[in-house]
Design a protein around this nucleic acid. Structure first.
Lengths: 408, 408
DNA sequence: CTCATATAGTTCAGGCAATGAACTAATACT
DNA sequence: AGTATTAGTTCATTGCCTGAACTATATGAG
């Protein structure tokens, strides 16, 4: 009897592991070292050797491959005091990645150089509320093509892209499971159509996750660990552990908006009851503050809310404080489950932070004493375009971690 | 000016990546393949080659190293129908790992062969409630030495061990942060004293995490993802994602016992308010059921509770149902945050499952509709000694994943 | 009983990648 | 101008995997 071999290198089974893997791994190591130097500082081969632990000889050979692939370039000379000056190395600014975003009120695209500089950005207002997916994607594809050709005119090649969408996504299958504000359910996206013929293709991200990644890039320190909570129409979240996005087994962890905070509360768009979103989402706050959300655009309503807060209108203040208190409760539970005790407030939580902070800290102290120090509650440093830039940045990072994907 | 190199292979920095790494990785690959064959089935070198994708030549060479290290052995012949029969390979049963546990009422130690068979097990009753750590560890060290010499008499060598403790631990620093039922706070453990002179040393585990690992070993399928909730005096939890324990950035994720489920509820031993533990911990259930927890031992009280449930005493039934309902609420939140929708009930939750199940499912359906299918709520297959065996099993697995640690 | 066939496992030349030492290149200090 | 110093390259060596050839050991047919 021939025994059936248990899953020949199948799912979960490690790869064969050959000698060529070493080169791939070291290629990434070298490129990563170059990328991690502060912007404006261009390390020499010798410095890269020092940073990676590889020998100068190995680094020279690896750098040659990276130059051939066009991922990095030599730039200027680097006087080291004595001795022969090193030639500076940097990620190639003429290679780029496109960040894209579909949101309720607009679509947008940006070209980001591998070194992180934003080369082009274009936003197109568009009402995507309850819009079908096909026309939205077609419009985005047109926008992307336009921006891409503008980049090409500058001699910049787009290697791939990342798309951020406000909803639950399955990145592996290029599928949007649900995006309540777009009215999408189980939508398969033809991502390759957005950037045809690129080496890396287009990756799909949840909006809050992408914004969390943007926040991560803004923090220079390695090994960052935090929870990014994004207050939008819904309440999204992204978990970053040790500078890695934690997406969970199914790809959509971090959905703090649907933690139960009010067991006897109202129904949620997700079908649940008493979710954080029902008390701390934009519409929930607006309604509690006595502002009808359908009067004018959302940003207008938000301005009205801010004005009411400035004027200390009791109903508005109470509404926001209530949201902060419940947010704290959700964060307390999150701290226990994923062992995180640092939070970054994004979206409307960032805007409302002055009024949110006190009740939030009070609530954290009550429900998770000793977990969140006050200085661990911070406001996002990335602005409105966080998701856009985060998506692009993440694709850049995945390229840096696997540069061999560019070499045939 | 010499630029300061950014962290030469420091924390977060990848290893140099040499050619020898390939061998280490493939050593683990081969050993893992041998380990993953069902117990009783001893694969030949050729079968291992098929399973791993390596060539027969490589496997032969790697197997030789593993034989030299004593991790595996050849056993019998394996007729394949036609042709020369293969020689069977298996994890060496004469090499073992010791699982150890400190709990409220006992200490225990077990010797588990690399192939997973329990060779020896010894439990020593001991009241560790509010006991100092030093005498408890001394008693455990004596027990371990005894069991270890008994193993040696059978020709079995103990390579290392794992210790499970009912409390929050920092595995990296061999530290128990808090173990309420033992009365321990910030206790540093001298783990090496438990098994002096072993190659692998002793690893530290949270009890619920260890039990989760034991549960994992019982499930043959790869890529298991579930939340193990352990009902003991406290309520612990262990998160397994893709057959890996998820411990979080600080090493103590999965503490579902302290998710907030009753915002206006009572104080918890952790200092928080309305934690799951305050309504679903053993003592909480006992009190709610009208059974004084200090009357006799806990197991006696549990028997009384079960009898009351059998007799359908309303107060007891309500108490357990309430616990189940709140447990469901905590699981609903967990599903959102870590994207898990499969739960294994352990400890008293396993015992009480017949009465818990209905309210638990009702609660899950209300707070996280569509996340947990009914068949995803299961009862633990591992018994009382889960933590003990899980700790040992995890150490065995870490050895399988890095066998080069045995070769100087 | 013998030979063809099939499978297991070993041996060996070839290739790839990192290493370390020797070497060339380019700068600053004296 | 000469020396010290640092950057980067060249080359022989080593280690490991691969693939092909080879040996070893079984089954089944005539």
């Amino acid at each position: 009897m021939v025994m059936p071999a248990p899953a020949a290198a199948g799912p979960g089974g490690a790869a064969p592991g050959s000698v060529g893997d070493v080169r791939r791994s070291n290629l990434a190591l070298v490129l990563g070292a170059i990328a991690e130097f502060p912007p404006g500082i261009h390390p020499s081969r010798a410095q890269v050797a020092g940073a990676t632990g590889l020998t100068k000889a190995s680094v020279s050979s690896l750098v040659l491959d990276l130059l051939d692939a066009g991922v990095i370039r030599e730039i200027g000379l680097n006087p080291q005091g004595r001795g022969r000056p090193g030639v500076g190395l940097e990620l190639s600014p003429s290679r780029s990645v496109m960040g894209m975003e579909i949101n309720v009120d607009y679509i947008s695209a940006a070209v980001v150089g591998l070194s992180g500089t934003v080369l082009l950005r274009q936003v197109e207002e568009r009402d995507n509320r309850n819009s079908m997916d096909k026309p939205v994607l077609a419009a985005l594809a047109a926008l992307a093509a336009e921006v891409r050709s503008a980049a090409r005119d500058q001699g910049v090649e787009v290697l791939g892209g990342g798309l951020a969408v406000p909803g639950l996504v399955d990145p592996a299958r290029a599928r949007v499971l649900t995006a309540p504000n777009l009215g999408w359910v189980d939508v398969d996206l033809d991502l390759d159509a957005l950037l045809p013929g690129t080496a890396l293709g287009v990756a799909l991200f949840n909006e809050a996750n992408a914004a969390a990644l943007a926040e991560l890039r803004h923090r220079a320190d390695r090994g960052s660990t935090f929870l990014f909570v994004s207050g939008e129409v819904g309440v999204g979240g992204g978990i970053v552990i040790g500078s890695e996005l934690f997406t969970g087994p199914g790809g959509h962890a971090g959905e703090v908006g649907h933690i139960v905070v009010d067991p006897d509360g109202g129904h949620c768009s997700c079908g649940g009851t008493g979710c954080l979103e029902t008390v701390a989402g934009q519409d929930a706050i607006f309604i509690a503050a006595g502002l009808a959300p359908d009067v004018g655009s959302r940003s207008a309503t938000m301005s009205a809310l801010l004005q009411a807060l400035e004027s200390r209108v009791p109903q508005a203040v109470t509404a926001v404080e209530r949201a902060g208190y419940f947010l704290g409760m959700a964060l307390a539970s999150t701290a226990r489950v994923v062992d995180i005790d640092s939070v970054v407030l994004g979206g409307h939580f960032a805007v409302l932070e002055p009024w949110l902070r006190a009740p939030l800290l009070e609530s954290l102290h009550k429900y998770a004493p000793g977990k969140y120090a006050s200085e661990q509650v911070t406001v996002s440093a990335v602005g409105e375009f966080g998701a856009l830039l985060g998506a692009a940045g993440s694709v850049i990072r995945s390229l840096v971690e696997a540069p061999h994907r560019l070499q045939p």
